[in-house]
Nucleic acid binder design. Sequence first.
DNA 1: ATAACATTGTGAAATACTTAACATCAAAAA
DNA 2: TTTTTGATGTTAAGTATTTCACAATGTTAT
Lengths: 211, 211
Amino acid sequence: MKMSHRSLPDKTIERLSQYRRNLLICLSQGKHHIFSHEIALIHHITPVQVRRDLMLIGYSGTLRKGYDVKELIDLIGLILDTEEGLKVAIVGIGNLGRSLIGYFSGKRSKLNIVAGFDNNPDKIGKIYAGVHCYSSERMQEIIVEEEISIAIITVPADNAAIVAERLVMAGIKGILNFSPKPLNVPPHVYLEEIDMITSLEKVAYYVKKQL
Amino acid sequence: MKMSHRSLPDKTIERLSQYRRNLLICLSQGKHHIFSHEIALIHHITPVQVRRDLMLIGYSGTLRKGYDVKELIDLIGLILDTEEGLKVAIVGIGNLGRSLIGYFSGKRSKLNIVAGFDNNPDKIGKIYAGVHCYSSERMQEIIVEEEISIAIITVPADNAAIVAERLVMAGIKGILNFSPKPLNVPPHVYLEEIDMITSLEKVAYYVKKQL
DNA sequence: ATAACATTGTGAAATACTTAACATCAAAAA
DNA sequence: TTTTTGATGTTAAGTATTTCACAATGTTAT
């Protein structure tokens, strides 16, 4: 089990996260070993792809018995997680923000949403599924104080740019942006964008093509 | 302006959708021509990539004046949209569902959310930002009746599989799935998955790497 | 008129990612 | 004990996507 994964492909990272989630389910069902073709089936990919991913992270299964579920989960954790975990803030406590808080609360112990921010005075001071909502004005202060390193932006498009700028100034290291406006961040801040409108238009394109 | 784009790269489709959104903003600001490097700057990609995409859709700009914004928007529309538009249903009117309804309502005239479905009796019969919420039991009936071709799944993970199955049976052609469980659909149904947990874990991975 | 320039369009190279092909080997079967 | 089987691990080939390099050419400056 060598640790020689200097730089894993982007797509492999995504799949590792997905593998882990389903491996945890397998484990909870009492399944302790799994074959590459079983993992592949769950994720609708080829067994070779699974084996390649595991090869890249330096994991070896047992011939004819497959992979040890528990070991694999732990190894993926070693790659994706930090030991102490990372703190996450969510900016914009609208429907989307609250939905995300719901998704994450309690689930992944290594990524905790520890603060929410919003401008709406009705929301400030309230607690949503365990997450305290603060005034946006206190963003910088609390991010520094709590050592929050990741932010999720779920504010309306027009506010996203200014929010991002303030997050960067506060020392945020990674941003997950749901606003459909491309953001401008310095290269030392990792930016991941989820563009739901584009995703839907893409579905529409392929539906059209098939008609 | 030839129409020889038998099969555009997946990534090009995504970018076209994004280009269009920002071109519409340019147009509304009175900008009628745009250079490849200007488009590139907005989207944080290279000018060559922009030119390549436009080449692939068979659009030619004017040397030294760049691209005609209006023409380009129209051409992208010709590729991404159907003339009559497509109808969209949203299954699961929780926080995420309502947030998506908010995003799309009124914005894109060619993709209209025309129905929502939920099991919660409190929600059935209500109207959310113009979208009527029906009982999930009427899903099949209404999809057929209204000729809905696209569905967005925003139900909890455990219900997603059965929802997908029923959507396929009802004749849905494309699905945008927000549940973190990989779905199983026949090959004639286009499936796009947005995995918010994976996206966040990916951000965490790159943040960790940079530390 | 001519030269310098800035921009487009594109073949070819480079990079990133996936899949095929197969050597290897432990377990099960004969 | 030997053969067959069915899995892994990996090199090499294939595909998809991005970038390089540069020819072509209209516009502006001289």
